[in-house]
């Protein structure tokens, strides 16, 4: 007899409208599938909401995830939904603690895929050290959604004496990126129909709490943290420049980009500066701490390629790039979607 086969979570092969009805099937989906898979990462109070006690300042954030495709090289919507919110908390200077998990499922999603997504939620939560304390499940009719949408909200505690905010970017600050940029965006693009190019690039989706901890331990002060998701580091740095009223100058030759990503970008006509990462962080801090922080980050598997890529200066607000050939150009905020060029 083979005991390695996992016990079936549910007798249904696909999600039905009734799984969101609030009745018996909903209850079975929540307790026999979701709560069971989440295991120790879930605090199930069987209550309408979670009662949390915290001390001091809390950070609170929310994010919705609608990624297409739901499964992509290097991850799926489940870990993305956990990591995205965890990273937003981290970039507020907080230690992530609790998440909510709201699912909007399209009727007909296979139970196998659903289980796999929930397993990723559990694994990512465990890795990030957060507990899922409340949630909601809705099912919409076939064609009214796109497999599954997930919203997560998160709460984290900000330790005393931390003050992370974009307006704190100051002249002379160094800008660190914790790893190669643009992996996530290119991994997603490589799966899109009609954009057939072969690449083995994996999404960089990952929680940043451990990297942040290393950075805080190594630095006397950190001014700004930002995860460059949609719009890439170009948009993130432009926002910081606008908020702080400072000029930002980055150096093209210092920005770590995987050669496969660079190649894909060249073929498709994309600029990696504008492509999303889901497990990278910009750290802006007084230059005196930059060497120590880069060294500390490089001790972690997610931070091997960490590097100083530029500086904040007291010029006219805006982001400038020193190009490979020695000239300087403006890095604009992204306009619209980046589309591949044709020749």
């Amino acid at each position: 007899m083979n005991f390695t086969c996992p016990a079936p979570y549910n007798e249904y092969e696909r999600i039905l409208l009734a799984h969101g009805s609030g009745g018996r099937l909903s209850d079975r989906l929540i307790h026999n599938v979701i709560v069971k898979i989440l295991g120790d990462t879930c605090i199930d109070s069987s209550h309408d909401g979670a009662l949390l006690s915290t001390s001091g300042t809390i950070a609170f954030t929310t994010d919705s995830f609608v990624v297409d495709p739901v499964f992509f090289p290097g991850g799926n919507i489940g870990d993305l939904a956990v990591n995205g919110t965890v990273n937003d908390l981290v970039c507020c200077g907080a230690v992530p603690m609790y998440l909510s998990l709201s699912l909007i499922i399209e009727e007909g999603l296979s139970m196998r895929e659903f289980v796999s997504i929930m397993e990723s939620v559990a694994a990512a939560s465990r890795k990030a050290g957060v507990k899922i304390v409340t949630g909601d499940t809705k099912v919409v009719g076939r064609g009214k959604g796109d497999k599954i949408f997930i919203n997560t909200a998160g709460v984290g505690e900000v330790p005393p004496n931390r003050n992370i905010a974009p307006h704190r970017a100051a002249a002379g600050d160094a800008i660190i990126i914790t790893g190669n940029i643009a992996d996530h965006g290119i991994a997603i693009l490589s799966t899109r129909e009609g954009l057939s190019f072969e690449t083995d690039i994996l999404s960089d989706s990952a929680p940043l709490n451990e990297l942040a901890h290393l950075a805080f331990s190594a630095a006397g002060d950190i001014h700004v943290l930002r995860d460059p998701t949609r719009g890439g580091i170009a948009s993130a740095l432009n926002e910081i420049s606008t908020t702080s009223g400072m000029e930002i100058v980055i150096d093209e030759s210092l920005i770590p980009v995987d050669p496969r990503v660079r190649g894909a970008c060249e073929i498709m006509g994309f600029d990696p500066l504008y492509i999303a990462s889901e497990g990278r962080m910009l750290i802006i801090l007084p230059d005196e701490f930059s060497d120590g922080v880069v060294k500390a980050l490089q001790t972690h598997p997610l931070g091997i390629n960490a590097a100083v890529i530029g500086y904040v200066s007291a010029g006219k607000p805006g982001v400038k790039l020193k190009t490979m050939v020695g000239s300087t150009r403006i890095v604009e905020m992204i306009t619209g979607e980046q589309l591949p060029r044709i020749c």
Partner: peptide, 16 residues
């Protein structure tokens, strides 16, 4: 070619 225009602007070659 437009690709050349793009590269000229992207690398601000006129500055050189």
């Amino acid at each position: 070619c437009g690709g050349q225009t793009h590269a000229i602007m992207k690398y601000n070659l006129t500055e050189l």
